[in-house]
Amino acid sequence: MTTLVPVTYKGGVYRHDEIMDLIDDLGGYIVQKHVMAQDVVLQSFVPRDDIDLIREVAKPLAGEVLEAPLVGTEIAVVSPSLEIHHLPHTACDIAEYLRRAGAKTNMVGLARGFGKRIANLNDEERDVINEHDLAVYALGNFEECIRQKFPVLRRGIHVPIVVTAAPDRETLMRVIDPPVEGYVGGVGRIMHRFKRPEELAKLDELVDEVSRTLDARRDDLARDPLSVFPPRLMTIVEERIHEVSMLTHPTPVTAQMEGLRVKLPYDLYADAVRSLEVADGVTVGDIADVTPSRMRNYILIRIKPFSETRILV
């Protein structure tokens, strides 16, 4: 079986459709396509052996193929509030940097994530964060505050968490109990854009930490694979439900590691999605849970593992 690896293609608009066709022909999937003025960025999964071929085809078009460890993941960047104290710099710079590594990021601004005594997490915030593959918590400067309020901010969260804050990594590991999946010290409440080399190095460290955490999850998934590879299901949904093409969202269908978020109203389209045929006689309903998302009125598809369905598409 060919291994699909996540890559980013960056190039010009001119003849980029040839690259898209090539990826398609090779059996790869395009998860996200961004057209920005004259530039095109394709987040995609391609067979490992064919990367050189794509590079060769892209050469005359001045396109480049880069490794992007986070393609096909949806990450929540959690900020303690939407006030000027916490936004835009830390949270937005983190979100932007993760996006460059291929992730789809969503910002979650908590209603009451500030103050060590009054901080809390409501049910909507909890459920929205749990719909992601991973949550990055952008915390502040004081060890004492993190010690006191982090247990409250993580209550009920079962997705992996990576914490960023001002105290160094060792201190964070000491004050956070039970441990989380990743720590990045030296990034607290910062009031300017990340631009100095040491600040950018911190963001690189964060990307490494996040990809390490997600790789561990991927290894788990490899032991008990999903009934269908999410980008494959994504292509099927996009092909068969034509309303998807009319949505104006940047990613009308968002690929996650274990499912999809379809940005169509649940009430109207859930049945259509459930009865969609993935392969001969196998419908989406057979291999996945189609549930309402807590994010607006979207549809959340959670693909079941092979061990549960005994189906592998």
């Binding site: 400067n141 060890e143 105290p167 607290g188 409440r189 910062i190 009031m191």
Partner: peptide
């Protein structure tokens, strides 16, 4: 750590 951060802020 907090002191340095607040100086910068």
């Amino acid at each position: 750590v907090g002191r340095e951060a607040y100086e910068r802020i």
